[in-house]
Design a protein around this nucleic acid. Structure first.
Lengths: 223, 223
DNA sequence: CCGTAAATGTCGTCG
DNA sequence: CGACGACGTTTACGG
């Protein structure tokens, strides 16, 4: 990876136009061709960038170096380098990547294995039950005979309620499944989402990921 | 900004858990306290990071330096530095920031000035018409007497249809506005969004930003 | 500080 | 390759 500290200005022309006035910034050129322009603040998002795959061409006019980065969609990032304060290059090698734990799919899996958390007498039909408008996270049979569709989210906001509502509308047209009721399960459910869900007869369940994990993993049990 | 090239491993513990196995990476420490861990690929998103505001503490055990980055929510990013290949520091100063053109608000403005694009005989009531559940992008009077609510998006996906549906539901309760119909305007509308919109009697309009811009700006006109 | 909506969103998965 | 949903989404903007 090449890292430059440089006095530069830049223009991105693509899905929109973004201009960067002249200032000192950090330029990162990654092995895959991608380019990031960082300032000394903000967050992890660069001021301007080009995602791979893309190609870089260089030209110099009157002591000013211009880098033209282009991707396949024809988007361009043009960087004018007025002065270079530092220029480093290091070989990093291929990264082994990240290992994640605790995302929605894990929560979904744990809930599927512990349906009691969601209500009594539920039997799993399947996870990711396919429908024309997308997969339902968990489809279950209720003890009473009807069906229960479960939408799982890490953070329960209003979008999830809308999503589940669409599924319920569709599933209830199927006489083999009807009546279908909904359960909205999340580690945290926002008040507005809860209100909308209740309004539509959807049950909200707040789940504790750590507790579920403990239930699931015998080595974590206290007794 | 401090930039290190180092052989490191890292663990984030917060909203979820992310582990980074040992490898050579780029560490960026920004002036506002934020930390980024970049590999030599991917895109602008770091493998791991901590957003500001946060604080860093350092300790060394058996030649291994551990950096512990903590934010207010109690999320932690712990970086074990096994070997430092390079360590640079540069003062960048405050960045003047970016100038953008072509985002949704511009599209909204252009559409407000060219309502014919959306349908015949529309008169603008106002942009960002306020309601209890958020602002409607464009509220218009129809020639026939009713009201038209317009939702503007750069890319029309299903969320926007839900958003507009909520507005329509609310606006139609107002006898001064009713009947209110919906128009979904975007540079590109996804099939599922179009299907759902049609299902709900919402008109979809695909708009050409460049053409609108040409209409709007006399200097761009051909005649 | 909460809530909503936009984003050059990016990233994975599945068809 | 496109569509779709999750994301440590992040970020900006109002009340």
């Amino acid at each position: 990876m090449r890292i430059m500290i440089a006095d530069c200005s830049a223009v991105y022309q693509g899905r929109l136009s973004v201009q960067l006035p002249r200032a000192t910034r950090v330029l990162m050129f990654k092995a895959d061709g991608s380019v990031l322009i960082h300032s000394d603040g903000g967050s992890y998002k660069p001021l301007n960038w080009m995602s791979p795959p893309c190609s870089v061409s260089e030209s110099t006019v009157a002591g000013v170096t211009e880098l033209e980065v282009v991707n396949k969609a024809g988007e361009t990032l043009s960087i004018m380098i007025h002065e270079v304060h530092a220029d480093y290059d290091h070989a990093l090698g291929v990264d082994p990547g990240v290992i994640k734990d605790g995302v929605e799919s894990h929560l979904q899996k744990l809930l599927a294995e512990n349906l009691d958390t969601l209500g009594y007498g539920l039997t799993l039909v399947r996870r990711e039950y396919p429908t024309a408008i997308g997969p339902v996270d968990l489809l279950c049979k209720a003890a009473g005979g009807g069906t229960v569709a479960v939408e799982v989210k890490r953070r329960g906001e209003i979008d999830g309620v809308e999503q589940l509502t669409r599924y319920l509308e569709l599933l209830n047209r199927d006489p083999l499944l009807s009546p279908v009721t909904g359960v909205y399960a999340a580690q945290e459910i926002k008040p507005q989402a809860k209100t909308l869900a209740n309004d539509r007869g959807i049950t909200c369940v707040t789940v504790d990921y750590e507790a579920l994990k403990g239930l699931d993993d015998p080595s974590m049990r206290l007794f």
